[in-house]
């Protein structure tokens, strides 16, 4: 499969294009974008195959089609916009055929919002006063399309029978609480397990005496995780160890808030869609062949031979 690099839009050019949307109706912004084509970006210095204008036009059309079924270009309800978010996240994750490193760049997402589909940004995020919502255009975790791609990239979970369960189950505030914590979000395995652990306990949290009990639970849970991360390296743990450590922190959070937590088995029985699929195994990590805990020590010499053997196998 051919992977593409995408144009990048520098911040000053992005600011110019954002200003140009001020006060315009969504349809007018769409017509202007169509008329201007795809010339504004600069190609990356380092290449694979540079994406074609036809493909960029197809992405624009696809995003408009997804938005169209949620009320675009007219006003829409919150539920419609959230439906668009979920479907657009899945599309952006699988439909761009981009070199993965490209999608980690702010300038690429600025190109998406300012050149490919500024009309959808305004439809999705503009307030009644028609002032552009700058955060949603600029790169970063709030970029209209970057945040959706990021959401899918982090929370698509191959461990579950439906990999999109987390993406379709988490609410907007839940995504924000996790994804705007870079220490958690940058480690996908960690973020997925945090989300799964939270969702397994979301119903329990509704018992809390709070105006937004589930979000309050998630906030306290994340604070506990971040504090813990100061001296425990959760991302280096084996899958089951990490899962246990995170569950214990979630349970401790709920207990501290006065909620009794049933066993993990009971939690899974209540939400079977969040069970790890039978037969799923974590990917092997280079070097992860050490002796099991409790066995006798190997000498440095033997250890060296083992690692050298593995290295030579990898070379071949």
């Amino acid at each position: 499969m051919t992977l593409f690099t995408y144009p990048r839009l520098e911040i000053d050019k992005a600011a110019e294009l954002i200003n140009a949307t001020a006060g315009l109706q969504v349809e007018k912004i769409a017509r202007t974008a169509d008329k201007q084509g795809f010339q504004a970006g600069v190609p990356p210095v380092l290449g694979h195959t540079f994406v074609t204008e036809e493909r960029l036009a197809s992405i624009r059309a696809q995003l408009r089609q997804l938005a169209g079924s949620s009320g675009y270009p007219h006003g829409s309800k919150l539920r419609d916009r959230q439906n668009f978010d979920t479907r657009a996240a899945i599309y952006l994750h699988g439909g761009l055929d981009a070199v993965p490193g490209e999608l980690l760049r702010d300038e690429v997402w600025q190109y998406f919002t300012c050149v490919i589909a500024p009309d959808i940004v305004c439809w999705r995020w503009r307030q009644d006063d028609r002032e552009p919502n700058i955060d949603r255009f600029m790169g970063g975790v709030r970029n209209c399309f970057g945040r959706l791609w990021r959401r899918a990239d982090v929370f698509r979970d191959d461990r579950l029978s439906d990999p999109w369960t987390l993406v379709s189950s988490l609410l907007e505030d839940n995504f924000t609480a996790i994804l705007e914590r870079p220490r958690i979000a940058r480690n996908r395995a960690l973020a997925r397990e945090v989300a799964r652990t939270f969702l397994l306990r979301r119903e329990l949290a509704k018992k809390l005496d709070s105006s937004n009990p589930t979000q309050e639970f998630l906030r306290q849970f994340m604070l506990r995780l971040v504090r813990h991360g100061g001296y425990v390296a959760l991302p280096v743990l084996q899958h089951d160890e990490m899962s246990t450590a995170i569950s214990e922190m979630a349970n401790a959070t709920l207990s501290a808030m006065g909620v009794r937590v049933p066993s993990n088995e009971q939690l899974i029985d209540d939400a079977p869609q969040l069970a790890i699929a039978p037969g799923w195994k974590p990917n092997a990590t280079a070097g992860d062949v050490g002796e099991p805990a409790g066995r006798g020590a190997r000498s440095g010499l033997v250890w060296n031979k083992v690692t050298e053997l593995l290295r030579s196998r990898r070379r071949t």
Binding site: R105, E107, G139, V141, R186, N187, T285, G287, G296
Partner: peptide, 19 residues
Amino acid sequence: TGAGFEVRELGFSSRVQLS
């Protein structure tokens, strides 16, 4: 890595006994 969004992955892992 990252230039906006950051990703972080486990690349190597190995056990060591203290005996």
